[in-house]
């Protein structure tokens, strides 16, 4: 009985410490976000001939170079979800539902989440390693000594570039999923014409899907990139601590994506139509 009580106390202490740690991390991340937004707003025109090429570099790394893998993910989603579901719907004579299904499952949910996860895996983790190493080797202090704001030089280009990349890649992922869904229909000789297929998808879209999708992808991209930059720069790291920071970035970002997804789901459900 006494042992069980001690175990319960230990469990409560552990949970309490975890909860406090979570709240502290959230507070620090919120402060880091506000600082970044402040720098983004106040230094928008400062040194743009140095900062803009850095944004373009991030767009290439997080966007253009990831297009092939996003195409593969989009095609896989199209085959796995649209194609197979359409096959089943054809058997029960409900092909008219394909538009609603595509919009609900792929357009609103899987495409933003898939694009954000691809970017997180391929760019977010290296970002932590780059910035963590930068911090560990004292390059951040070197920038400060030169009067260069480290947030402006290191964080802003990454946040802007990665966020825009997630927005763009989401659109491409949706297009590839729609295309591969139709390819599946064509290959399986299903009785759905291309015009009918696209018409049903277009008919299932509401006006609010576009602003909500834009905000959602912006939130995913900004959240993932800010978490990566925060983990890399927030405190002095020793070189051996950098891999741990990368792991924390993935875990925190996935939790943040799921929370944001739930938030946008509620928003979508509350909207009329």
């Amino acid at each position: 009985m006494l042992q069980a009580g001690r175990d319960l106390q230990l469990l409560m202490e552990t949970l309490g410490l975890r909860a406090l740690s979570f709240l502290d991390t959230t507070r620090r991340l919120a402060a880091f976000t506000l600082i970044t937004m402040g720098v983004l707003a106040t230094r928008a025109g400062t040194a743009h001939r140095v900062i803009h090429p850095l944004v373009r570099t991030q767009l290439v790394q997080a966007g253009i170079l990831l297009l092939p893998i996003v195409a593969v993910v989009g095609m896989a989603l199209g085959f796995a979800i649209v194609g197979q579901t359409l096959s089943i719907l054809t058997q029960v004579g409900q092909t008219s539902l394909i538009g609603s299904l595509f919009v609900t499952v792929i357009f609103r949910e899987l495409a933003p989440l898939g694009a954000a996860l691809v970017v997180l895996a391929r760019v977010g983790t290296p970002t932590v390693v780059e910035l963590g190493t930068c911090r560990a080797l004292g390059e951040v202090e070197a920038l400060e000594a030169l009067g260069i704001d480290p947030v402006h030089y290191l964080v802003v280009p990454r946040v802007v570039g990665i966020t825009l990349a997630v927005v763009s890649l989401t659109v491409y992922l949706q297009l590839f999923a729609a295309l591969s869904g139709w390819v599946f229909c064509f290959a399986a000789n299903l009785p759905v014409s291309a015009g009918d297929y696209l018409g049903r998808i277009a008919g299932a879209l509401h006006w609010f899907d576009f602003p909500v999708l834009g905000l959602k992808t912006l939130a995913f991209g900004a959240c993932g990139s800010l978490i990566a930059c925060y983990q890399g720069l927030s405190r002095p790291l020793r070189l051996e601590e950098v891999p741990g920071a990368a792991t924390r970035t993935v875990a925190h970002s996935v939790v943040a994506f799921l929370l944001l997804d739930a938030l946008f789901l509620v928003i979508t459900l509350l909207l009329p139509g």
Partner: peptide, 19 residues
């Protein structure tokens, strides 16, 4: 504490470019 991802000349030029 040079910036390792830049070339030597870019390291020297960065403060001038920025300011």
């Amino acid at each position: 504490r040079l910036l390792r991802d830049l070339r030597v000349a870019e390291n020297i030029a960065l403060p001038t470019g920025y300011h």
